[in-house]
Structure formats: structure tokens, C-alpha cells
Design a protein around this nucleic acid. Structure first.
Lengths: 171, 171
DNA sequence: GTTCCAGTCTGCGGATTTCGCAATCAGGAG
DNA sequence: CTCCTGATTGCGAAATCCGCAGACTGGAAC
């Protein structure tokens, strides 16, 4: 049945055509579909179709394609602090050498939930989710800093999550 | 997959992990449900029930409750860069005076998708999503810095999103 | 002990949604 | 014009969602 892993291809490793801005062929209709699912990830296809002007089957096909292409994922999101993960941090990383290879190494760590290459005084920003202080300490000091190419890190431990939305489409 | 029910029925609803921030208490079964929905936000209730050892109706009630309580949300998430928002940045903010009031002001801005209070050389970390350079410039220089109490900001413009997952529960 | 009582779970119909597929339609390319 | 390829539609069949009534559990009060 639904036992397939529904593999989460994370925000696309190396797809040349997609790295340019604008992304793949996302027309206004697909945008509208995404917008609908940003309000409610379980909204029925028929309701979405009524909102965007398509049939139920067409919406279903487009959604499946967007999922397969990795353009979007439909998931439950929580505040980890309320679900047992007591230590979270944003870690700024400075790299010497190839930034992308370091980013790949960090991406492979399950504790790193969010990895982004940036311009500014950090080359990478990484969000780390841990169970406690010891765990956090180990991830930052023993694992992230052990990655070849990592020159230095700076940590910002989360005190309180104030906002977390995904409805940029609706404004 | 997890073929084995995660918890026996006798898992009492009150054996929560503590949450100092007044968050609702979650037992092992609810955690398992969240975990299922982190893999696939549209997974049928019956399939979830089979995985966690509950009936379809029970899963449905618990999911509805988790949504109502704001413990989790089921939504579509995307990489904004692939969907028309060409400029994204993490902004570190230093505050003098009441941090929380500044955080509330930033939370009210629709361009701020993510606001978190931190310990470290920044008091707040804010993720900003904009349409172009002008938009980003205006948000950072004219709006964020105009908030009373903001002493200084430092920006990290996103170059490429490498990873974005929500499956902390499955590891 | 017994009796509420609130919260949760189960079972089960009926309404709704999802699924798969064949047919139809739209837009190029040759 | 014809042949493609891809998107869309319509429609039964199967699966899922939904609401509700009854049963179960643990705790509090007596």
C-alpha cells in the first residue's frame, strides 16, 4: 500500500536546469495548487480543483508530479521543542576549499535538519536538532568540526521558537 | 517501515515529556503518529493506525486534536527559490531592551517566515523571504531596522538550499 | 466498596475522496 | 494535414473519511 518510503529527495542536489531562478515549469496553476496545500496539506483534490479551475484528476496528477520532482513535500511540521528535542541551534560555518562538499557532508547528518549555502560572514548555515546538551555538543564539536574543510563554527542555541509558517504564497 | 506497534494501549496520555513553555503533553502514541505524518502528510488514517496500534477513528481524533492544539501542522513546503522568490536571507538581530517585543514585531511581518530567539552573538534569528533584491533591501533596512529596540542586524543571503527535512522523529 | 464523570477508543454505516484508465484535447514538429 | 507528446477530463470501483453511538478506562468523590 503506502509502504513506499515516499523518498524525500531533499531540495534537489544537482539539477542544473533547476538551479536557475524561476525554477522548473511552474505555471500559475501549479503555484495556486501549492498555495492551497500550504494552507492545508490534506485538502481534497476536488476542493483544490474547484479553487484553481481544474478537474480532480488533473490536480491529482500535478500534485504527484510536484512531489516526484521534489518541488514540494507534504509533511507534518512541529516545534521540536514541544516534541522532546530540547536543544536546537543554528550553526554558522566557515569553510576553506569546496563549500559544496562540506554542505553535502552536513546534509548527510540526520541531526542537521536544514542546510543552506549563504553569502556573508558564514559560508553555510545549518540548523541542528538534538535531544539534549550532550548530544548538541557532540554534533557541533565532534562531528561538524570534524568535516574536512570546516574552518570554524559559531552556534546560536534556540531559546524559543516564535514563528514558523509556510504560507508565503498567501499574502 | 515500522511494522510493529510502537506502544501498547496502556501508554497513559499523561506521561508526557515536560514542556516548560506550557505546551500540551504528548504520549508515545501521538509521537508515533506525528512521525508517520512527517514521512507523508497525506498518509491514510488506517495505515497510521496499523503502524501505531490504534483504530482508524482514534488516529483521526488524535490528529485533529494535535492540529487544533497547534502542536503540528500538515502543510506543503517548498524551496522558495524554486517558486518565484528569488531572494532569501537569514538575518541575525541584536536587540537592546525587551527581546520578546521585538520578536513579536518581526513575527507580524509577512516576509518573516521564521523567527526564533537565540543565545549567542545574536538575540534573534529571522528568515526573510522576498521577491527580489529591492524587496529584500527594503525589508531589512527599512522595516526590520525600524523596529524599536533593534540595535543592529547582519544578513546572510541564501545562495542555495541544500537540505530541508522534517523527519527528526525517524532516526 | 460504589457511583459518577471526563476522556478515549472502537465499530459501523453512509458520504466523500482517491485511484486507475481510456478517451479527449492542445500544441508543436515534420 | 498528420503524427506525435503531454495535459486534461470523465467515470466506475475501491479505499478513505466522517460522524455518532456505545463501550472502556482511570480518577475523584463519597
Amino acid at each position: 500500500m503506502h509502504s513506499e518510503p515516499v523518498a524525500s529527495r531533499s531540495a534537489d542536489p544537482r539539477d542544473s536546469r533547476e538551479s536557475r531562478n524561476g525554477g522548473p515549469q511552474l505555471d500559475a496553476v501549479s503555484l495556486a495548487i501549492i498555495e492551497q496545500l500550504q494552507e492545508d496539506g490534506r485538502r481534497p483534490y476536488a476542493a483544490i480543483g474547484k479553487a484553481v479551475g481544474l478537474s480532480e484528476a488533473a490536480v491529482r496528477q500535478r500534485v504527484q508530479k510536484l512531489l516526484d520532482q521534489g518541488v514540494m513535500q507534504i509533511v507534518a511540521v512541529t516545534d521540536p521543542l514541544t516534541v522532546g528535542f530540547r536543544r536546537q541551534a543554528m550553526v554558522g560555518v566557515n569553510v576553506e576549499g569546496d563549500v559544496e562538499s562540506v554542505a553535502d557532508a552536513l546534509t548527510a547528518m540526520s541531526e542537521c535538519e536544514y542546510v543552506v549555502m549563504t553569502a556573508g560572514s558564514f559560508d553555510l548555515m545549518v540548523e541542528v536538532v538534538c535531544e539534549d546538551d550532550d548530544h548538541l555538543l557532540e554534533v557541533i564539536n565532534r562531528r561538524i568540526r570534524a568535516v574536512p574543510g570546516v574552518r570554524s563554527t559559531e552556534s546560536f542555541v534556540y531559546m524559543k521558537l516564535k514563528k514558523q509558517t509556510y504560507m508565503w504564497g498567501t499574502r
